[in-house]
Design a protein around this nucleic acid. Structure first.
Lengths: 345, 345
DNA sequence: ATGAAAGCGCTAACAG
DNA sequence: CTGTTAGCGCTTTCAT
């Protein structure tokens, strides 16, 4: 929709009676250009309201100055924090951001990847969808030398660069905390163990149990899709168990909250009958009653770190293929849902 | 970061012994091209792995095929729903999306607008920041004929196109509902009345009071920044009032939830002592106890509508300067926080 | 230190 | 129905 023609470097060149190439170099602060010439160029550019045409530049330079991001969902506190972090760094570095949403669907993720590939992004930051099994759709990126960096939802067996939290540790400290509160029969509510984050939290959970000589059996593991219903159903299952569990480590604050609601509605007291630990430190933790003990980890920082590493790689400052794993700090936030008044230790 | 050269229309043309322009036209499904030629072109394009170079096309066509979005914040259910709606429509229409976040800051919003302007977006969709007073930073868009469309947080006095809900009606039905429950002294917790959404909800609130001959006084109006603290402070203020209010219409579910928490901690019963209605229908409504009565409105639909209108305008199908206001449906969702057992009517 | 000229890949007159 | 040609705005050799 062109209305008025834009100011180009030729306009500046004509105004100054110099060549367009000189203007181009001047604008890029090339050392080849004299100080006074440069100054004149910048002044006239500002005066005339010049702004580089990215599309011409990108066409010429054969690179898009754009970074693609594929997230597994958009309506999540964690994901939007990460995006905010990525946005901060990329904007500052002069890159555009193209955000795609796989909505937890494998086929959508494949489509997103293809689309971003053909948009010729310079790099890609990805959190895998729930359904994703293989990483084949990222092959064309790596083959073409386009760096792909994963965060949170990753595949660890591949030799890709990933930004994560120590999910094993998180699972461990969450469970250990429950054990310290005197819990003996601890349920774990989580999602498909094919996804790294859940597999590792589970591993940490098992490790804590084992270390404290607590038995585990299959019935204590409840796998769902982490929607509202999962919370309700988990509560139902827990109440049916005999003996009833006395603790639960639930890998989602929202699910944990629904679970607490349901338990309470059925006369089960939290934390006294069942102590509960969630995951994420969503704002909801402060609303639910009792307030929810959870694992906190810094989404925005993860985004910043991912973006920074990617951009440094693009600028040749570092090489991410040498970096395999970046682990970000995480910690237990203790609130009321896990604090038993009477330790049955 | 060029590695292997991309396939261009010239490669296809050479392969087929035809002109590049024919390939270009064929790929665009131009009616000028013969059926069999077209078929051959498409086949070879697929076979050779051709994909249009957007940057060349955009340079040539002088339009970016990109839509800019400025949101007032990112970590909000409503906003991400809207973004999802916008994304759906724009992706389908072949537009890229550039998302900027003003973080409720006027200066950031100005910077975002400038940046998107220079990225030559074809159109802009905006929800104003909290601080924004004037719309001057959008002038360069309108001067250049670039359509700007506002949603939710808008300025209504200007002649811009806006997508909103009927906030007056929402304020009215929320308040009316409380009145129907027997409430006589209804507090209104909201944010700066300079922002349209809050001003209008307030107007609806006043209208409902007036219609039912209920008195209003300044003390019943609590203005805050709608953070966690606002909820706590509002509860404190309400408890200090004499007589205490018996109802509250709070323009944020999160704030309402914090308020309920605080009231309950201080021995005030909800809804029996004070009935409460929130706004937004966030997932949190189902977690808080009692569950929160609220106003529901369709973020995703609003996004779709905004995007669709913008794109239709860009395609010359409609002209948004003729459309002033698009109002989207909204409704009261009654839950427990507002249902008094004993109507003191 | 500056200029001339070519070309990135595509589209759109214009010509046939 | 198809081909020829010019040019979008920029960067970058290659000259000077």
């Amino acid at each position: 929709m062109k209305k008025t023609r834009e100011v180009t470097i030729y306009d500046i060149a004509k105004e100054l009676n110099i060549a367009a190439s000189t203007v181009s170099r001047g604008l890029q602060d090339s050392p080849e250009i004299g100080k006074k010439t440069k100054k004149k160029i910048f002044e006239t550019a500002t005066k005339m309201g010049y702004h580089v045409n990215q599309y011409a530049r990108r066409l010429r330079q054969q690179q898009s100055n754009t970074i693609g991001v594929i997230v597994h969902r958009l309506n999540s506190n964690f994901v939007t924090s990460v995006l905010a972090g990525i946005e901060k760094v990329t904007t500052q570095a002069g890159y555009d951001l193209l955000i795609a949403n796989s909505s937890e669907s494998h086929s959508q993720e494949v489509a997103n990847a293809k689309s971003l590939f053909h948009k010729r992004v310079d790099g890609l930051i990805v959190s895998l969808s729930f359904e994703t099994i293989d990483l084949d759709h990222f092959n064309e990126f790596t083959e073409k030398g386009i760096p792909v960096l994963f965060f949170d939802r990753v595949e660890q067996d591949k030799h890709s660069t990933i930004v994560i939290i120590d999910n094993i540790k998180c699972g461990y400290i969450a469970t250990k905390h429950l054990i310290d509160q005197g819990c003996k029969r601890i349920v774990h509510v989580t999602s498909s163990l094919n996804r790294n984050v859940y597999a590792q939290r589970y591993k940490g959970y098992r490790k804590a149990l084992a270390e404290h000589k607590l038995s585990f059996n299959e019935n204590l593991l409840i796998v769902g899709n982490l929607t509202e219903d999962t919370g309700v159903e988990a509560a139902m299952q827990m109440m049916k168990m005999n003996p009833m569990p006395d603790g639960a480590f639930i890998t989602s604050d929202f699910v944990a909250s629904m679970c607490i609601r349901t338990l309470k509605e059925n006369g089960v007291s939290v934390p006294d009958d069942i102590a509960i630990v969630g995951f994420n430190n969503d704002p909801i933790c402060k609303i639910v009653e009792p307030t929810l003990t959870t694992i906190n980890y810094p989404g925005e920082d993860m985004g910043e770190i991912a973006a920074r590493n990617l951009i440094n790689h693009l600028n040749g400052l570092t090489n991410i293929s040498q970096t395999n794993t970046i682990t970000v700090r995480s910690e237990l936030v203790v609130r009321k849902s896990s604090l038993k008044k009477t330790k049955t230790n």
